[in-house]
Amino acid sequence: MNSPVLQFPLREWMNSIVPEVFDTMLSLKAAPTPAGSSPHPVSGEQISGAIGIAGETLSGAVYLHLSLPFAREITALLLGSAPGESPAPAEINDLVGEFCNMVSGRLKSSLSDHGAPCAMSPPSIIRGSAFAIEAMPNAIMEKFHFDCLTHRLCVEIHLQPQKP
C-alpha cells in the first residue's frame, strides 16, 4: 500500500517537535535518547496524555508518557508555583493533555500537508503504573524517548493506514 503515512519521516519530525515544545513552553532541553542506547521505559507511577486521530486514509493515536514526579515538576515550573507547593492533580492533567495536544496537533498538520488529512480528539488522561498500550492489528507503532532534566519521557505513536 502506497500510503502517505508510510512515507512520513516520523522519527525526524518527532525529534524536532518534542524538543520545540519543551524549549518554547518551559525553556528546558528535551534531548532524543542517543541512537544505540537502550531506552528504558518511563518507570514508576506515570501519567499519559492520549489523543485520537482519524481521517480517510489513517487512524491512530498519540500518547505522551511522563513519570508523575516529572509531570508535577514541569507543571509547577510552568505555573510558577512557590517552592514546595505542589500543583493540583487537575493542573497536572491539564498540562500533560495540553503538551500531548501540541505534539498531536503539529503531527496532524504535517500528516495533512503530506496528503493524509485527519481530525483529532481532545486529550484524555491515563494514570497508573506499569501499563502498556496495545496496538491495533496492522498499525505502525513507534516509541520515541527523550531525556529532560533527570527524567525520561516517551511519545508513542500508533498509526493505521486505511484504504481510501
Binding site: N101, M102, V103, G105, K108, S109, S112, D113, P117
Partner: peptide, 9 residues
C-alpha cells in the same frame, strides 16, 4: 491560538 497549522486548515 492552536496547535493545528496544516496549510488547508
Amino acid at each position: 491560538l492552536t496547535a493545528e497549522s496544516g496549510r488547508e486548515n
